[in-house]
């Protein structure tokens, strides 16, 4: 249960650079009226960023080649089906975690 001054400073530095991008837009939109085209663009951000995060985890960089991350990919199939079928966050997460645990148990 210990830490050092330099570690605290490092964490504070990381906290600051995480905090600024989170808060800055909230201050910006209070003072600047967003043009219509920007709002239209922002409407695409949720689906784009969520699909990017999912897809990025299904790829793997190996020996200068980008390939499919098979384990994640296989676990993602039942996960996606449960998401489409149940539209439930918790059921999807449980399916994903359990599938991955089973896969790792048999493949390792």
């Amino acid at each position: 249960m210990t830490t050092s001054l330099s570690m605290i400073l490092l964490m504070l530095g990381c906290a600051l650079v995480t905090w600024i991008p989170r808060v800055f837009p909230f201050m910006l939109v209070r003072n600047v009226k967003m043009p219509n085209i920007v709002l239209k663009w922002l409407a695409y951000i949720p689906v784009c960023i969520l699909s990017a995060l999912v897809l990025e985890s299904l790829f793997r960089v190996e020996h200068n080649f980008v390939t499919l991350d098979f384990l994640n990919f296989i676990a993602f199939i039942p996960t996606l089906l449960v998401a489409i079928w149940t539209k439930s966050l918790s059921k999807t997460v449980v399916t994903g975690v359990v599938t991955m645990a089973i896969l790792r148990f048999f493949l390792h």
């Binding site: 999912v54 985890s57 993602f76 489409i84 966050l89 399916t95």
Partner: peptide, 9 residues
Amino acid sequence: IAMFGALLV
């Protein structure tokens, strides 16, 4: 990953 997938759906 599962949660991002569900939120996307």
